[in-house]
Nucleic acid binder design. Structure first.
Length: 306
DNA sequence: TAGTAGGGGCCCAATTTCAT
DNA sequence: ATGAAATTGGGCCCCTACTA
């Protein structure tokens, strides 16, 4: 069951949970002391997270839903660390990564318990089952939730702690396996930043539309490259931007450190006079925008000191 | 060593399904 | 029949592993 993105729902029948920034996983506990983990796409990922073998409780047969996260020293999920765990299969590599960045499983739902399908039960009843589970290991947690009426509180609380956002769940809803449902609504804390366009990748030879924008933010001595943005603009905006960018052509990258930019596609550099707004999740360790979305041009084109 | 592939996520646009 | 909602497909981003 997947959440639909949207504004925070309010009203008497929504409960709220933290939106954990990691990798979604289903935990299969056959009851014989084994553990199997599957990813959102159904891939078997057990071998990548050996420490989660600790979840096995002899006699407990269940299927649970949760998010695998790699917490930093402050207890906040660090997606960069998580990425260093995902996809690893070589035992030596897995061991080394597990020692450096151990993961925790945040459990938030029960799909089967003791051979019984629990997906038909309402959210609140599944939560009760979840909280009564005899899973008591440091590698797993059952984070609390906020009852109806406290949606704003949940948003403020998660914002204060630098968490990604909130997932609202309708208290009477059943679990819908494999589906994206409106009974779960995810609301992210979005950040925006003002950027200058320093280059672009045309969609084709005609250069009448764009594939992506290369943007920068104010750096120490000039424009610092912040990554490329490939979504958020409609067909119309794409055409308009291409039209505005074509006359701004310049031979060299306008960024202060052009060495770090790796683009295999044909890039057109431009004088960085166009200012726009980009919505993004967070800054990566390398100073790039994570999950950037173009939100539009801001203000008139300006003559800039770069 | 360089290039390719794949996982996770996001959005737009097109298509299909569902309601009125 | 018509419009809205849901689903699917295609791109792009970030990061790392795998392959040649």
């Amino acid at each position: 069951m997947l959440a639909t993105p949207g504004p925070l729902p309010t009203g008497g029948d929504w409960a709220y949970e933290v939106k954990w920034d990691g990798a979604r996983a289903l935990v299969h506990l056959p009851g014989d002391g084994g553990v199997l983990l599957t990813s959102r796409t159904g891939r078997l990922v057990t071998d990548s997270y050996p420490e989660l073998g600790a979840l096995a409780v002899p006699g407990l047969a269940a299927v649970l839903d949760g998010e695998i996260v790699a917490l930093d020293e402050t207890g906040r999920p660090d997606f960069g660390r998580m990425q260093q765990r995902m996809g690893l299969t070589r035992p030596a590599a897995v061991r080394a990564a597990a020692r450096a960045y151990p993961v925790t499983l945040m459990l938030f739902d029960v799909l089967r318990l003791g051979g019984r399908d629990t997906t038909g039960l309402p959210y609140t009843e599944r939560r009760e089952l979840l909280e009564r589970l005899p899973v008591d290991v440091p590698q797993a947690a059952v984070p609390p939730y906020w009852p109806p009426g406290l949606g704003r509180v949940a948003m403020d609380w998660t914002l204060d702690r630098g968490l990604e956002g909130v997932v609202a769940k309708r208290v009477g809803s059943r679990y819908e396996p494999g589906r994206r449902s409106r009974e779960w609504i995810k609301t992210k804390h979005v950040r925006t930043v003002e950027v200058r366009i320093g280059g672009w990748v045309p969609r084709d030879e005609g250069e009448r539309a764009l594939r992506s924008l290369l943007v920068g933010v104010a750096g120490a001595v000039g424009l610092r490259y912040a990554g490329s943005v490939g979504t958020g603009f409609s067909e119309r905006e794409s055409a308009l931007l291409a039209e505005l960018l074509r006359p701004l052509d310049t031979p060299a990258p306008p960024f202060e450190d052009s060495g770090g930019i790796e683009v295999e596609q044909p890039v057109r550099w431009v004088r960085p006079v166009l200012v726009g707004e980009v919505e993004f999740l967070e800054w990566t360790r390398g100073g790039r925008l994570r999950a950037p979305v173009w939100r539009g041009l801001r203000g008139p084109p300006e003559v800039v000191p770069y």
